[in-house]
Design a protein around this nucleic acid. Sequence first.
DNA 1: GATGGCCTAATTAGGACTTCCGGTGT
DNA 2: CACACCGGAAGTCCTAATTAGGCCAT
Length: 444
Amino acid sequence: MLQQSELIFDFASDHVNTSQLGSYSDYPAVIVEQVPHPHLLSYAGLTCEQTNAEEDHQQLLKVEPCESGEEETMETLVAADSLLNMDCPDTLSLEHYSQTFLPSLGDVINTPVTQVTVSAEGIVGAVDQPQWHSLHTKKPAAQLQSKKRGRKPRHRRAESPTPNITVKKDKYNKGGNTLYLWQFLMELLQDRQVCPRYIKWTNPNEGIFKLVNSKAVARLWGKHKNKPDMNYETMGRALRYYYQRGILNKVEGQRLVYQFTSLPKDMIYITDGDGTKEEEDYDDNSGNDEGVSDDSDDSTIPSSDQSVDEEDSHPPQKKMSSSSVRAPATQRTRPAPRPTVQRDTVLRPTSTSLIQEQHLPIVSAEMLRTLQNLPKVQSLQPAGHASVFKTAQLLGSLCERQAAAEVSVDGKGVRETLDEKSHHGQKTSHVEAPQLVPLTNSDH
DNA sequence: GATGGCCTAATTAGGACTTCCGGTGT
DNA sequence: CACACCGGAAGTCCTAATTAGGCCAT
């Protein structure tokens, strides 16, 4: 399960590849976790008001501590488990997410939301279709060695998305699923399971972040890439390559501190205003930021089977903000000395903070496109071009149907039942890379 | 049989790391 | 001494682009 803040989906259906859609005759059931219709719509409003993006574009979101209670905690823990349990193919993990990742930096909508797991069941009009499994099916060996053919030279491939961190959507809208390291780091920075615990912003205004626990981050990266030997040295080399490509800068004189040259418009900035004592200790050292890292023990990395226990075993102040119900930072006995940065400004009223109030679905962009092109689904949607608004309505309808169906059967919650379905191999989660804007000191 | 369209699989260039290394700085 | 950091070099893995060959309809 993914954490709400991990995933971003693009839903600019202007890019729908109808030829691809034609092959998706199987419409997985949409597993919606706590889909808040008004919220979704509100969230979608951000998209629909794209024309206002320019003025909002420099505004930043602050993730407030969640106060939704046990469900939130449970989901967060599950999310942490999935995040760190990347070895499990049946878990909707970051790895899986990366496999279906559809970054589209140039696309219109790049908004972090929660998740929707999709399976083929439960959608009216769904037709069996195997495409969603084809990613993992291997060709028969006989076919692999059947033919040998020559070929002519070809044109040069599309250039790298860097250094401007703009991804050509042609490349990424065709099933690409690569999650780049910088994207991974951005995801971590938006993931309250790891931010600010393992990685945190030190100066969100300038895109400066610190690898609080470099080993943990490297191991997470290694898990994601299926490189068990990954370490910070290796990951650091990849990070250093980003210097050349203009994706990252090194912050001089500060260890483990890097700077994004660009950031997404709608980046969610998790602050450690809800931080733990430990994190405050980091802050205490942030003045010089010299090497006080949490690297001392690999056990600090929650493994797939220990994350929950670890969370539970921590003293309350160790809990991640996402899963805690706590008093506002201002009420803490130990006031946070961290400087207030401009990006801490809550751009949305707290009462409408998406992340704070509840999960939003992370929807596979591709799934949504597929769904939107279903005749029966289209009947649910308002007229006009695809949008998050449409998606919200669609999801709302689907969720209601699911809920009604499940309640009528055994009284189980939608989520529980659908999670079950998701564990039967029908799942996906697509996200889009954030739309990035160049960072300038005055920009934020 | 010739032709054209479509689909599939083979091939391969290139991107994004990964690995290793030697070195410097703190 | 440990660790962070740097960058060169070579290698691996993966993806997208390209294209040949098979199949079918006309």
